[in-house]
Design a protein around this nucleic acid. Structure first.
Lengths: 246, 246
DNA sequence: CGAGGGTTTGAAGTGCATCAAATAGTGTGG
DNA sequence: CCACACTATTTGATGCACTTCAAACCCTCG
């Protein structure tokens, strides 16, 4: 039992926000925590559901999205470990602001929102840490709005590849797509067909080899020139460095 | 002098976040505050400028935007009193995450970020209030991403009108556009020509009279049906009720 | 081997952007 | 009060980007 609590606390500490929180709070959280596994396709919760718990992704990928009355879907983000999900429902009348779905077989840690709420009200440093987390996410979203308005399909793909390729050093670098091309397409706000064709267009514009879900390219420079000209930041930008989400 | 401080504090208290902050903090802020007037077109600061101050709008409208290397512009938001501008630079390495421009003759209150930073670090309730403000803004931005992905031009205009019309009660309601049609177009992520044509399309779809910047319509119902079918929330939604920004 | 999902390709249509030009509206000085 | 200059808005014509629908292809896995 004690071991379990320790294990949960260790897992929680992978999250950038929770890492900054103090021991006692993590212990409180861990007491009412539970591991959950879901298989591919499972809907975790729906937009505007009443929110009592939030989640930390431990394994796999989760899609955040909204669905319109006439049946279309907008993907807000696709997250993996160690991201949090649903924590901002606290400020949204305790309703989730998006739906969430497992796109993999996933493992989550489920945590009570009430404990988080109590803590940010009484513990200034936790509130500050969460403020940091939410504010950083906000500026990523501003960039998202910019990109969806000003980048064309091929450039959005290029930007996505840059985020994936940022850590590699050598000249020839190999990028592994993290999930389905169809899903990447929806993450980038385009149709699968458009993704396929835009990747073809990218291939013609810059030297690039595509084999299934692996992409190899000589150097980033050409890709950067092609992609980042339609962006407000120069290349080694916060999105590529910080790489919070994909 | 004392009168001045009182006046500033009163002005600051119009802002939803600052209203929740305590007297002593407002006094500290007010000591280093200054009123500033700018005329139409004045650029207040640029994206990635080093940020030392944030602003509260007292009068007029301010456009927040980002500009790409190849010269295109994405409008993030257009704000009026009593909104804050630039406060989240605190969490973005003290750089503004957007450029800001007066689209009117405006009046601002300029405030030191350092005082805000100090306060949120030492005063939990201020951190909490700011967390609230940022988190709410975040879910509005999620909706913004959704709308730009899934609504067509006429529906985006309809949604904009619904935000303007939400407070009126009677059946026949008159809506006054708050600023240039060209600017509304950029706010909604479309060209001025597209705005004009999409408004024409809207006029054909639902009963609607346009006279310059005044729009009259019989009832909201038809507009709601037309617009909100491509949205994830049903009509009296948070955007229309809360009406944080236009 | 066959089924089923993911991916690509083709053909056709739609929505929006762009370029160009006409029109309406506003403020100015005479 | 009018003519002019200037800006905002509309309209027309055309092109491009992306979507949609349909079908083929490919790959994996039972």
């Amino acid at each position: 039992m004690n071991n379990d609590l320790e294990r949960i606390k260790q897992d929680l500490a992978h999250n950038l926000f929770l890492k900054k929180c103090d021991e006692t709070f993590l212990s409180t959280l861990a007491q009412d925590a539970q591991y959950q596994r879901f298989s591919k396709g499972k809907v975790l919760f729906l937009h505007e559901d009443e929110a009592e718990r939030f989640y930390v992704v431990k394994k796999g990928w989760v899609k955040l999205f909204r669905e319109t009355l006439d049946g279309h879907q907008a993907v807000i983000d696709i997250l993996k470990a160690p991201h949090m999900i649903g924590e901002t429902a606290l400020f949204d009348d305790h309703e989730y602001s998006y739906s969430a779905e497992a796109i993999d077989d996933i493992e989550l840690i489920s945590l009570p929102l009430s404990a988080l709420e109590k803590e940010i009200q009484s513990n200034g440093s936790v509130a500050l840490a969460m403020l940091n987390s939410v504010a950083r996410y906000k500026s990523l979203q501003e960039k998202e709005i910019e990109h969806r308005s000003l980048q064309n399909a091929a450039q959005r793909i290029g930007c996505f590849l840059l985020k994936l390729g940022h850590e590699h050093e050598g000249p020839k670098l190999k990028i592994q797509l993290p999930y389905d091309k169809t899903l990447i397409a929806s993450r980038l706000g385009m149709q699968p067909e458009t993704f396929s064709r835009a990747l073809g267009k990218l291939k013609k514009a810059i030297p690039l080899d595509v084999h299934g879900s692996t992409i190899e390219l000589e150097s980033l420079d050409a890709l950067i020139a092609y992609t980042c000209s339609a962006c407000s930041s120069e290349y080694p930008c916060k999105t590529t460095k910080g790489c919070l989400t994909l």
